[in-house]
Write a protein that binds this DNA or RNA. Structure first.
Lengths: 194, 194
DNA sequence: TGACTGATAATAATTGTTTTTTGTCAATAC
DNA sequence: GTATTGACAAAAAACAATTATTATCAGTCA
């Protein structure tokens, strides 16, 4: 069973590399199969459709963004500073990724527009990571918040301009980083204890 | 000179009707010309390109959204209530327009994605209308705000999910109205005097 | 003299055809 | 008996030939 898992991972890794080079439209399952030294038909033993394969690849990419967010949330600084860092850090991570690699951007945009299930899941993960910062802030007396999950949800919704792939690409070139900092300062006013 | 202005307006009105029926891709300047009882060449006396004509049409559509926003901003209720109304009202105006008429939506999305100058202008107008509510609130002691224009800018940025045509269409079906209300309540905490 | 048109070149969209690609399944290999 | 494949039908993409559209401009009309 470990061998099968291994093969699956090899396929996903190969597909990820191919898509980063040629985009998810141009990469064919025949290409991926050839790179893995197997027949196209064998890919379909692991993934019901090409779309499912692309979804698996996107899942890995979104997981990288989640790791980045988690790293910021776990820093030793005070909760307010981490909120600021979160807004700016998540924005810059996405901005760099999407401006650096157009193929990755194109794929994630498709995932977002067509509302693949993984995107909804990713959004929930981001909200819960953000909520963990709020929780810390409430615990140590920095913040005063009734409903932490609800507040996290609202705050992440307010950040859409800075992390949604379509928005990030649309405003590229302009200094969204400054705006992200301004938004974090504004939002901190709403939750800071006084 | 009034006759020329008249002709221009007739062209824009006709183009607006055509685009609402068939979309801005399918409507040709020949179509618009025929509907106005003139030759295609004559359109080019008023608009340098087809794109410029479409831009003029979009400008009128955006102006309708601005009128709606202004109407909300000028209501007699307290500033806090108007902020709430603004978030929900602007969202629902755009949602209804874009779900009701796909062609209008398609055109405004193109304007937004390709960053036509009118969109940047529209954004500034919306911010200044919103700022007028903040100003009222500061004047009558409801709010406490340092930089009104800056704050309006940040708050409108936070509303992107609820008024940007791409975002509104993407989340259609889900109850964004509730989320908009939640966001307005959250943001009011940041500016309310206490 | 200013508002408009007909004819037309350059560019872009459409249509119909050929070639790939996706996805299935019975057959093979290990 | 489990992992894999080759052969193949249905669906989609690429291509080339054709048609339509944009934009220009010298010239007409009132």
């Amino acid at each position: 069973m470990s061998v099968m898992e291994d093969t699956r991972d090899r396929i996903v890794a190969s597909a990820s590399a191919q898509i980063q080079r040629h985009g998810h439209v141009k990469t064919t399952v025949a290409d991926v199969a050839k790179h893995c030294g197997m027949s196209p038909a064998n890919i379909y033993r692991f993934f019901p459709t090409k779309a499912a394969l692309i979804e698996a690849v996107s899942e890995i990419w979104l997981a990288l963004a989640e790791d980045n967010a988690r790293a910021i949330a776990r820093q030793p600084s005070c909760a307010s500073a981490r909120i600021r860092e979160f807004l700016v850090g998540v924005h810059e991570f996405n901005r760099d990724r999407y401006t650096r690699n157009g193929e990755v951007h194109e794929t994630v945009v498709a995932a977002t527009m067509e509302r693949w299930p993984i995107v909804a899941r990713h959004e929930k993960v981001i909200i819960s990571i953000f909520a963990s910062i709020l929780e810390d802030g409430v615990r140590n007396g920095e913040f005063e918040i009734d409903d932490i999950e609800g507040t996290a949800s609202v705050m992440v919704a307010a950040m859409v301009k800075f992390h949604n792939p379509i928005m990030v690409a649309q405003y590229h070139g302009e200094s969204l980083t400054e705006q992200a900092t301004a938004l974090s300062d504004f939002m901190l006013k709403a939750i800071r204890k006084r």
